[in-house]
Design a binder for these strands. Structure first.
Lengths: 142, 142
DNA sequence: CTAGGTGCAAATAGTTTGCAACTAC
DNA sequence: GTAGTTGCAAACTATTTGCACCTAG
């Protein structure tokens, strides 16, 4: 494949392929969960002239194209991750800040119930649950 | 009761009762779910000289005192609500932005499972689920 | 060539901090 | 009287926007 899928998707929307866009997508894929700033850092390691503005614009674009999605974890920080990756629930530890992913199936019964009771369709990939992780909860050092 | 419970709680921590603190707490109770800015607006309707800085500081204080809690709904704005109010899960509609609360019992089986599998303690009152509400989902106007 | 894309600087929004004046007790 | 509290202005952080220059196709 001389032409990456990103280029194809972009072209099919009448948009241009640029090195910046490839780098941002690569960074999101490599990082798994990352804030715009973390993506920017990762991109800069490869091409230090890329501006954070471009990162913001590119993340927004990639999201519109359905290549990445974002979730709001802990405080306000949005974190981006590849859209094609397996959907997962984010568990955010309020003490150590660690984010772990769990299989979305765990949310299925709840999702079903909300749909039945309220007609509410939960966006599973967008879910973040706050609490205290096993490591922090085990030792009660609060 | 000549002395409100807020005054009592404050005093028991060596802190002072002020009109601003009562107004902020009242606003949170009255609004149910509100961002700092919304709280500020509500407070200003009663006492327009109250500064938003004071609102931020007071919300933080009331949270430390266990009188209010906050959750991160949709984008970045934190929303505060009374801590003594029944805990509830927040359902945030991605289309209309409406926030509705549902009984936390629905989350209990999931919480139990996460505790068992991961040792992760979900903070139920802090949970927000994103998706599409019945009203927006019913008419597929996307 | 030329419309889309980028970098830079400035604007904006949300929140925090330093500090002098004020007030609850 | 005095330490806790407030208002104001300034500082900060995160994100967005305007615009001239650049480049993919």
């Amino acid at each position: 494949m001389t032409d990456s899928s990103l280029a194809q998707v972009l072209r099919s929307h009448g948009l241009r392929m640029t090195p910046q866009r490839q780098l941002v997508l690569d960074a999101v894929r490599q990082l798994g969960h990352a804030t715009p700033e973390q993506v920017h850092n990762a991109v800069q390691r490869v091409a230090d002239s890329v501006n954070i503005t471009t990162v913001y614009r590119t993340l927004e674009l990639l999201e519109e194209l359905g290549l990445v999605t974002h979730t709001h974890l802990s405080h306000g920080a949005p974190t981006y991750h590849p859209a094609d990756e397996d959907q997962h629930i984010h568990l955010v530890c309020r003490d150590c800040g660690t984010v772990e992913g769990v299989e979305p199936e765990l949310l299925a019964p709840l999702a079903r119930e909300l749909r039945r009771q309220r007609g509410f369709e939960v966006d599973i990939g967008h879910v973040a649950l706050f609490g205290r992780c096993g490591t922090c909860g085990g030792r009660d050092d609060r």
